[in-house]
């Protein structure tokens, strides 16, 4: 059986639904390039929508140097967020639905205006933001040991899992996001820290990048959408019994338990 868009989308959604990790698709389908990978990602989105999920926004992956170095991939990418990925505040990580979840702190935008690339800059992107929130993304790769190439991870919706958004919304003009910091604690012990500058130099750069990447594919970021701008630090494990706390300078604190 040869590989195509349909088979790849089926394989990835099956891995997710059955909680079964798998090898990289490019091991079997080396011709999978980035454009085809995004087509696979869009196909998985279409199937999510067909089963009743709704688009709530987009996310960026591999936007920080820490993540790029860890994964050995030097390019950021975009992916889709649906309401099925939303974790209510206080809810534990659903271990029975995920393969090998890891948590990472993110700066989250709620969009006020439509943003359509190409030609979007960080400044114009920020002007389209309604409010800024802290967030935690629970990433989960369908690939064994998070081993993948750029097309693999793009096809896999950029390792999307779950996400939770913080309690405080701040207008973007009230913040210097380059120096907005987060402190990550695991079971009360400091594990890592970073500022917004770790995300493509500034989270608005990540937003512009997402708008331009989507624009290249004839898509736009719509008003009311969430944009998860990418992990600020390396991701931390959240096994059962673990509590991850993320404290932001001005965006409040979030707590996530491993159940």
């Amino acid at each position: 059986m040869t590989w195509d868009l349909d088979r790849a989308a089926t394989a990835l959604l099956e891995a997710e639904d059955t909680r079964t990790d798998r090898g990289p698709i490019t091991d079997e389908w080396p011709e999978l390039d980035l454009d085809m990978a995004y087509a696979v990602q869009d196909e998985t989105l279409q199937r999510r929508l067909n089963r009743g999920e709704h688009i709530v926004g987009v996310k960026l992956g591999l936007t920080s140097r820490a993540k790029q170095e860890r994964m050995g991939i030097a390019a950021p990418l975009t992916a889709w967020l649906t309401d099925a990925m939303l974790l209510p505040a206080g809810a534990p990580v659903p271990q029975d639905r995920l393969i090998h979840p890891r948590a990472e702190p993110e700066i989250v935008f709620v969009m006020k205006d439509r943003l359509a690339g190409p030609g979007v800059t960080a400044a114009t992107a920020l002007a389209a933001v309604g409010s800024v929130h802290g967030g935690i993304e629970v990433i989960d790769s369908r690939y064994r040991d998070f081993r993948f190439t750029l097309p693999d991870v793009a096809a896999d919706n950029a390792s999307s899992g779950r996400f939770v958004t913080g309690p405080v919304g701040v207008p973007p003009e009230k913040l210097d996001l380059a120096i907005e910091a987060c402190l990550v604690e695991v079971d009360g012990q400091v594990a890592d820290s970073a500022t917004g500058a770790a995300v493509q130099g500034h989270p608005a750069e990540a937003l512009a990048l997402a708008a331009n990447e989507l624009g290249r594919r004839g898509l736009a970021i719509e008003p009311g959408w969430l944009v998860l701008t990418g992990g600020m630090t390396d991701a931390v494990h959240v096994p059962p019994g673990t509590t991850v706390a993320v404290h932001f300078t001005h965006l409040g604190s979030l707590h996530l338990t491993g159940g």
Binding site: L183, A194, T195, M232, H247
Partner: peptide, 18 residues
Amino acid sequence: RLAGCTLHRNGDLVGTGA
């Protein structure tokens, strides 16, 4: 506790933290 810090070397961002 939560003040941000950035470190630049020759204009390149080389570290951030709280």
